[in-house]
Amino acid sequence: MSQQLDHQQIRQLLNHSAARLDEPVLSGLRAARARAMEQHAAQHAHTLAVSGHGGRLGHGSFQQHRLSYWIAGLLLVASIVSGIAYWQQTSTDTSDEDIAILTDDLPLQVYVD
């Protein structure tokens, strides 16, 4: 009949087992952990570089990021300026009314003070 172990018990068993390991085994495990950490750090740096500038690896990634932010900001400002100008043109468009007044049956003087 198998005994169910919780996380706490498993951790105690592992710690107990690790304390009984020989020194060569322990040093081998430490070295393997260090290699795994280095590999993870290298993969993380590669991912950042790829997302930063279209897959080109190299120096100056910080400057590249900063330039990208400036360009994005510039595009945003241009879009806002353009949007405001368009909104002003459309919201104050009275050309339909003006044409109607200027071609109406009644003379213009009726509407003008």
Partner: peptide, 30 residues
């Protein structure tokens, strides 16, 4: 309508923005 537009356009262009806005309001009310 083209004839009316041509006859009135010069006068319209010489009105102040306030006069034109007043005319639009009167037209809409009418």
């Amino acid at each position: 309508q083209k004839q009316r537009l041509h006859k009135r356009l010069l006068y319209w262009s010489q009105l102040t923005p306030e006069q034109r806005e007043g005319a639009r309001q009167k037209y809409k009310a009418f």
